[in-house]
Each structure stands twice: as structure tokens, then as C-alpha cells.
Design a protein around this nucleic acid. Structure first.
Lengths: 340, 340
DNA sequence: TTGAAAGCGCTAACAT
DNA sequence: ATGTTAGCGCTTTCAA
């Protein structure tokens, strides 16, 4: 491909215009300390006069740094990831890094291709949450990454810093609250995936119930085979059992809405007949009648931890990989009440 | 900053290993036709053996192309933009372009900074939907863009290709349907912003009503001053009027949920007492009871048009800027019925 | 078809 | 403090 643009003004032009050497011009551009006041002023003036803007590709080539971070999530249509991206963008932009977002869409081949692309494009660092945490190819692609990486809420067998959501603690908080309200039968409704969040929530609920001396019947664990399967039917069936749970923990926007419909259809009313905690905090939770009590991770804390780790590695930190845990917060609204 | 990585394998190594010249190696890497079979094979083997991967910064410097597209939206937390990004990513990835997403957050200064960053980073092209379509600084920053750009659903005074959502046609379709069901009083509930979509929807509704011989009372146009103001109260008031509208067009997730609450609180039931069309198609619309009839733009069509335009410009097309209109589709579900 | 060589714009080491 | 210079890795003329 032939160069298209009519060679724009470069640092050489700046140096010439300012009547100083190439090196001095570069020093001013890069804020290197050892520069005389007069020189600096002349160069600054030249930059202004010529409208000089450094060529990023040349800088990258020379400095071996693109000042770009790759960000691989499952799907930015998921508000969790969208908000996380925003929070990360905030942190990295402040440090002069641009964030490149890519959707893995739970497709291992796509995730692998994207990871390789990140490598090819010379990302300075990456933050990744691969949907397929056990896929050999994905694991290999992650291992092949030669830049610093932070793994988000995944149990990935890799020597990278990890930022995990503390699902267990979240479950403890929710169960503690519910138990305090007299609930003894608590159910969990979520999609069925083999990934860390799902596993941890189920484990966490079991452990928390045990800790509070509550029985936990496996029927209370509703794992919906696929996103197309009807949460409505499953919840309706659950609520029709004689010793039905008195509190529901519900994950996923669609599942939540269908669950709410099933509750209404069963003639049950929140929080009188049933208590509900949403896992994750969709837009409408706060607007719902009654407003829905939510258990959610503090995404800003996640972004802070993630940025802190990655920035430290970019700064050359070589200490062993760490695994950070970010707590969930229980936002009390109106959907939990005393057990009937 | 001193180079960190221990000089990786470059095309020179490949050439040496293959026993050919630098130029030949480059030709093979870039699939240039005039290359002998034997040479090609040797180079390919060397690439394989050495694990060669081209240095993107060097390629960019030389070819003056980063193969990266900047994408400026208001906020990717808005599902509309998230889905649009996904659709665009699909198109551009297929052409070997990476998409860089940035959130303008409706802050003109931020939008300007981002636009300048796109220029600085040498994006090959951009697709932008600046929140502040009339802000002088933003306009200036857009004008300063020296790469191809496509403007999304904004009335921006700029000489760029535009892809507009056909709000007027959408309104016509919705009103036609509603009028067919006997509705004569149709209200629009949306947030109050001076941007194109809001303006076009209000204009469109007025025109469509007129075309169908329906009166349009300005009280039917509910523009909520800010996202924090209560749609609930406004809708409750609207429904309490003696000659209340029999159909509602509602835009925005939060507003929609509050509207639904207000409808329920008024003892009204969809679609018996009132019909409703949601403008935009949030996750829960299909799961709601009853499922909500939605008017939405075809985002894949938007992405197709946008990619087609930008790719054409990247390919050197210099024809005058065009303005494309993408239709909305009315998804009939269960929230519209005969006028009471 | 292939090789040799120039140079994209920049940073940093070295020399002054 | 400033100037000079050698590349970073690559594409693309130009010659052969």
C-alpha cells in the first residue's frame, strides 16, 4: 500500500523551525528534564506554529510501547461488562492508555483469535475474562501472551494477576440477611454454565446455608440449561412445591424478569409472600415495584484493583502473581421481608 | 523508555533463514503476486520455523495505516450502543480492522479530547455519535479529523457520510398500527435532550398523527427534564386526565419501567385499558407480561451501512458525502390492543 | 522474479 | 545542555 497522506510535519521540521537539534526537540516533546529554558520555549513555539503532532506509530516502533490495553470480555451487551469497561477506561485514560475492547462471545476460537490479535498488535497489557476458562486452546493462547495481563473473575490456570469477585462472601451476606428475617428455605436461580461465577455462587450458597444451620435442598438450586430455556416454567414449578422456598436469589436479567412474572402469576407478592435478591443490578431493579434488593460487585473497586495491578506490571513489577478478591455489596431495597 | 523486550524475530531473520532477500520475504508476508513458488515456500517455512510475527508498529509507520477504527459513542452502558458496537466489530474484524471503543459520556470536553486522541493515534477511520451535536468545540474537533468518518444518527454540520435512524418512518409505522386499532390519542414519553433522536421522534409523531387525522395535544408530549426526574409522576399525572391518551410511546429503559409501574398503580392493564409501544427494545421487553411491542432500529442494518460507507472511503472513494436512512421495525408483541 | 537500498518518524546512546 | 547519529522493523521503489 502506498503512503497516502502528503507527509505531515514531523519532529525534524520542528527542530529546524526552532533552530535546534533533533534531539532537543525530542527531549521537549517527551518532557525530558535536561533541557534549557530557552530551547524549550523555542521548540514549544515551533510545535505550536507548525501544528506538530507526534507520529504514534513511530513512537511505538522506537519505544516498543503502544500505550494501548486490550480488553477481552464475553459480551459488552452484558451491562456488567459495559459498566466495567467504562470504569476501566476511566482509570487507563488517566494514565494515557487507550482501551481496545473485544467481544469473545463465548466462542473459544474467537477468543483465541482475539488474544493472538492483541499480541500481534503489540498491546502493552491486557485484561481478560475468557468465557472458556478450561479450553486448552484458550489456555495456550493466554499462556502465549507476552505482555502483562490481569484475569477477571475466572479460574484460569495461568501465572497472571487475578481479580476475583467474592461470590462466597456475597452469598454469606445475602443469606445472613435473609436468615435474620427468618427465612429457612432459600433458592438460587441462575443459568447453567461451568464458569467460575456460577460455580462459586452455588458453592457459596451451600456453605452459607450450612453456616446458618439451614437445610439446603438440591431442588433449591435451579440451573437453567440454556438462555433460551424458560425460567418462567422452572420458577413456577419451584413455587408450586408444598415446602417452597421463601426467598429467591436470582441471577441474569432475562431470568429475573421471567421469575418476576412467575411470581406474579402465582399470585405471590413481594416482599410479603416471598423475598427476592437479584444477583447483579439491572437498570430496572431500582425502578421496579417494589424496588429489588440487589447483590452486586463493586465494579469501581474491580476497576481500581485491575488498573492498579496492570499499571504496576507495566511499571516493571515482577513480584509473583497475586489473586485479589473484591467484595460484593448487598443493596437493600424493598424486595426482602420477614419470612411468611 | 528503553526497549524492554529482547529483540524478537524480525523479517530480516526470516529472509536470512530462508536464504532470500529482505524484499522477497516482505513480498511473501504481504501476499504480493510476483513471487516464485520456491521462494514463497522457503519463506513460509522460515516464518513457521522462527515463529515470525510482523511488527505492527513498523508496518503502520511504513504503510501509514493502523488498521484500527475509532468508535466514539455516548455510553456503551446503553444497550443500543453496546449492540451496535458488537455489530460493527463483526463487520470490521472481518476486514482486518480492530475497533477502538471510547465513551464520550455526553461531556463535550471529553468528546473533543477523544476525537483528538483518535487523530493522534492515527486511526484509519472513525465512526462517531457525539452527544453534543451543536457544540462549537466538538464541531471543530470533528472538522479537524483528517481520516474518513461516519456520523451516526446525529445532525452534525460536517462533510461526512451519515447513517441516520429513520425516526419519522418509525413513528409513522407505530401510529398507523395504533390508529388501525382505533386509538385517537397517542402520547410520547421520552427524556428531554436537544439531540436528533428526541427531536425527530417528536416531529415524527406530530406529522404521523396529522397524516392520520388525529389530534395531537402538546400535553401528550412528555419530555422529562433529566434522567433523575420521575417518569412515574409524570405518567401518573398524564393517566389521571379525563381525556387521557389510550396509547403510549415510551423511550428509555428507566422511563419505561417507571411508566409500567405507573400504569399498574393506576389500575390499568395492558393491552386492555391502554396500549404501549416501547421505543428501543430492552432485554426485558420480550419477557414482560404481556410482552411489549417495540419499535426499534435494525442495528445490523445500521452496522452494515456504516461499515460499507467507511470501508468505501478507506478504499479511496471520494464521492460527495451521503446521508443514509435506516428504517425502524415495529415488533408486534402483546402490549397493543384495540382502543378501549 | 529477485536483490539492494532508501527512508517512514522517532528515541536514546554517545559525544561534545 | 545540546548536537549527532544509529537504528527500531518494515514496505517499496529501482536495478538487475
Amino acid at each position: 500500500m502506498a503512503p497516502r497522506k502528503p507527509a505531515s510535519v514531523n519532529i525534524k521540521d520542528v527542530a529546524r523551525h526552532a533552530g535546534v537539534s533533533l534531539g532537543s526537540a525530542s527531549r521537549v516533546v517527551n518532557n525530558v528534564p535536561n533541557v534549557g529554558e530557552a530551547t524549550r520555549a523555542k521548540v514549544l513555539a515551533a510545535i505550536e506554529a507548525l501544528g506538530y503532532r507526534p507520529n504514534h506509530a513511530a513512537q511505538s516502533l522506537r519505544s516498543r510501547s503502544t500505550r494501548t490495553i486490550g480488553c477481552l470480555v464475553t459480551d459488552v451487551s452484558n451491562p456488567l461488562y459495559a459498566q466495567l469497561f467504562r470504569a476501566l477506561e476511566e482509570r487507563f485514560l488517566a494514565e494515557g492508555y487507550l482501551l481496545l475492547l473485544a467481544n469473545g462471545l463465548n466462542d473459544p476460537d474467537r477468543e483465541i483469535a482475539l488474544l493472538n490479535l492483541f499480541r500481534l498488535r503489540g498491546m502493552d497489557g491486557v485484561v481478560i475474562a475468557p468465557g472458556n476458562e478450561r479450553h486448552a486452546g484458550v489456555l495456550k493462547a493466554v499462556a502465549a501472551l507476552e505482555m502483562p495481563a490481569v484475569v477477571l473473575d475466572r479460574d484460569l490456570a495461568s501465572p497472571h494477576d487475578k481479580v476475583q469477585f467474592d461470590h462466597a462472601a456475597g452469598m454469606r451476606a445475602a443469606v445472613a440477611r435473609l436468615a435474620g428475617l427468618g427465612h429457612r428455605r432459600i433458592a438460587l436461580v441462575q443459568s447453567q454454565s461451568a464458569n467460575r461465577p456460577m460455580r462459586r455462587r452455588a458453592e457459596g450458597l451451600r456453605a452459607a446455608c450450612k453456616a446458618h444451620g439451614l437445610e439446603f435442598d438440591d431442588r433449591w438450586l435451579v440451573q437453567l440449561p440454556s438462555s433460551t430455556s424458560s425460567a418462567y416454567d422452572a420458577v413456577a414449578a419451584l413455587l408450586a412445591t408444598p415446602d417452597r422456598p421463601t426467598a429467591l436469589l436470582v441471577q441474569g436479567t432475562s431470568i429475573l424478569v421471567e421469575t418476576l412474572n412467575a411470581i406474579a402469576a402465582a399470585g405471590l407478592s413481594l416482599p410479603r409472600d416471598l423475598s427476592l435478591v437479584t444477583l447483579g443490578d439491572p437498570d430496572f431493579a431500582v425502578h421496579h415495584a417494589p424496588p429489588l434488593t440487589a447483590l452486586r460487585v463493586d465494579l469501581h473497586a474491580v476497576a481500581d484493583r485491575t488498573a492498579e495491578r496492570l499499571l504496576a506490571r507495566l511499571g516493571g513489577e515482577t513480584a509473583e502473581a497475586v489473586s485479589l478478591r473484591v467484595p460484593s455489596e448487598l443493596i437493600e431495597r424493598g424486595s426482602c421481608g420477614p419470612a411468611p
